[in-house]
Amino acid sequence: MDNLTISKAADRFALLDHSPIGHFVLNRDFTVLFWNKCLEAWTGIRRGQIVGESISVRFPHLGEEKYVSRIKSTFGGGPPTIFSSQLHKQIIPAPLPGGKLRFQYTIVTALPEPANDCYHALFSIQDVTSLTEAIDNNRVVLQKALAEMEERRKVEAELVKYTEELKRLNRALKERSIRDGLTGLFNHRYFYYVLRRDFLLSIRNREDLACLLLDLDHFKEINDNHGHPFGDKVLKNVAARIGRIVRETDVVSRYGGEEFAILLPGTDLAGALVAAEKIRTRIGNRPFGHDSRDIRVTVSIGIATCKEHRPPKPEDLLAFADKALYAAKASGRNCVVAYAPEGGKSN
């Protein structure tokens, strides 16, 4: 022992026996000069067993170049050296009950030995196991929380998707509830709603409102002679032809079996007669094809308007149009008739 005898070292470093940190001191030849009580407790190796022997006898990894090269600068009074727990895990493997090894954070500092003008290397080993485990536990908890958040986010996204789907279905359902399945026109129920709305609007806006009731002539015979599928085809085609004539603001509905009701907002009697006539001729003059035969279908149309006929209630406007339709049927069909309290005026 050229620098410091082992017994002198025990005296000199006795204070380190009271430290809760693992300490050992190496001589420049890597022999152990001092081994504190904490390390005795961690490793089960008594000071008397290890002092005087090279540290690499019991801990061969400390003889590897990666350690030797950094430790030996200490003997020349070099700067402190750190061995962190992540890059080195254990400088001095010290098992815990259960066999796991302590995580260690080690600092090596140069201790001057003035008597011999040289330096020893003091190793101070902090046990960072509980810190490492606490961080790992925290990380597990954090991961779990993040996973839960992600799960919640997914569920919420699903919910949004379902809500959208529900809205879409509701819209479809609503659409279906106001439409006629065969022709795609508005149904009877929706027509009443629009009739009431447009009637009130026409009063408020001091505008006219015309109502046309249209009935296919002899439709029962068409069905009987050519079959119901053809009858349905005629209904669809009539709906399409009306649709091409009226304005976007007009409301066309299938009022009954072969009966159609049309509301023309802002239209007076003269305008309504023109529109009705156009519809009548567009249907009556162009036959419907069936089994390479042309079938001619005619319509009768009754008209009533607010300004001309002054119905007190929306239902009265419809009733006047119905009366006019009845008159059109009575006067030989395939014609347009405007309501007249005394009987009606053919066009």
Partner: peptide, 12 residues
Amino acid sequence: AVTTDTLSEIGN
């Protein structure tokens, strides 16, 4: 705390 110890060693 553990990763910053490692950073200390790299800095060291």
